[in-house]
């Protein structure tokens, strides 16, 4: 179903289920059924070369599972991921810069590893010259290559992660909450760096975050997820100018407005239901102010043929032309 020649990644009807049943003996004695968690439940999107698609949603919506499916850390239970690029040139940046760097390796060795894997037999002098260059690119100094990860702050460690990702000469980067563990002033440094690198190296990002203001700054297209599905996908400016899905509006409403402090709000009630037993029909209907009978009985259909502007909501379909 390759419709777009400029698409670097196409995701079709992607599904990932996890077995969260009680152990076999408990099931036998307590007569409990098998239980399945649908972490990703029929997701479609494409990413164009050189662009950033952001997946945004709250914990448990399946956004990180998609990151792991795209990078091959999980196998899909259904659907397809088509990557029209060089698999070896797909890299990932993780949320926790403390856990993703080997504490026993010097930074120089950490950054050199993808290089050595990608081009075995590169002369040592060339490798170390390239490592120095990469460290400079991300705003560190070549002498930092001799230090260990614990000698760096969180923001510097995330720069090391980025340098390591760049060492693999990536064309596609999956970034899973790359700045969530960082302080805001450091977050700004890392986000600016990532934008600059994207422009210079023509990188494509799949950017995962729970923070809509970060996503607005980084993404060309935003997909909002709720309980394993994309509920709305729109180009960034349009999503913020005219959010369609009630859940998107809820998320936008929760962002504190720094230009209008001390606002009194009436936040939308309710919580995300358990993905093990999602509500019937549209999974958002128990929290939705627009819900009517059809939402409780029927699920909005996937419409994979529409790429950049769709909303999975019966109430919106009736009022808007999308």
């Amino acid at each position: 179903m390759s419709l777009r020649p400029d698409a670097i990644l196409e995701v079709d009807a992607l599904e990932r289920r996890f077995d969260v049943s009680a152990p076999w003996l408990n099931r036998l004695i307590e007569r409990k059924p098998r239980r399945t968690l649908r972490a990703v439940d029929g997701v479609d999107f494409i990413i164009r070369r050189g662009q950033t698609l952001a997946l945004v949603g709250e914990s448990g919506c399946g956004k990180s599972t998609i990151a792991k499916l795209v990078t091959g850390l999980h196998a899909p239970s259904g659907g397809a991921i088509r990557f029209h690029g060089d698999r070896d040139r797909l890299q990932m940046i993780f949320q926790d810069p403390y856990a993703s760097l080997n504490p026993r390796w010097r930074v120089g060795r950490i950054v050199a590893e993808p290089l050595r894997t990608l081009r075995p037999g590169t002369p040592e002098a060339e490798v170390s010259a390239r490592v120095d260059e990469l460290l400079r690119t991300v705003g560190l100094s070549p002498s930092d290559g001799l230090k260990f990860p614990h000698e760096f702050s969180g923001g510097q460690r995330q720069r090391i992660s980025i340098a390591r990702a760049l060492a693999g000469e990536p064309e596609f980067l999956v970034c899973d909450e790359p700045t969530s563990a960082l302080d805001v002033s450091v977050q700004a440094q890392v986000l600016n760096l990532m934008k600059r690198l994207q422009k210079e190296m023509d990188l494509t990002y799949l950017f995962i975050s729970h923070d809509l203001s970060v996503v607005r700054h980084m993404a060309d297209v935003i997909a909002v997820m709720y309980l394993g599905r994309i509920v709305e996908i729109q180009p960034t400016a349009d999503l913020f100018a005219s959010p369609l899905h009630p859940y998107t509006r809820l998320l936008l409403e929760t962002i504190p407005d720094l230009e209008a402090p001390k606002r009194d709000r009436s936040p939308m009630g309710g919580e995300v239901p358990s993905p093990v037993s999602p509500p019937p029909g549209c999974s958002f209907h128990p929290r939705c102010p627009l819900a009517f009978d059809r939402c409780r009985a029927e699920r909005p259909q996937r419409r994979p043929e529409v790429h950049d502007r769709r909303v999975a909501c019966f109430a919106c379909e009736e009022t808007a032309d999308v």
Binding site: N192, S213, L258, E259
Partner: peptide, 22 residues
């Protein structure tokens, strides 16, 4: 600097304001 480094929902700045260093 702290206020400037928060991505705003209104401004269209290409670059976030940064405080150098840590």
């Amino acid at each position: 600097g702290l206020m400037g480094s928060i991505p705003s929902l209104r401004s269209e700045a290409e670059e976030l304001r940064m405080i150098p260093g840590a």
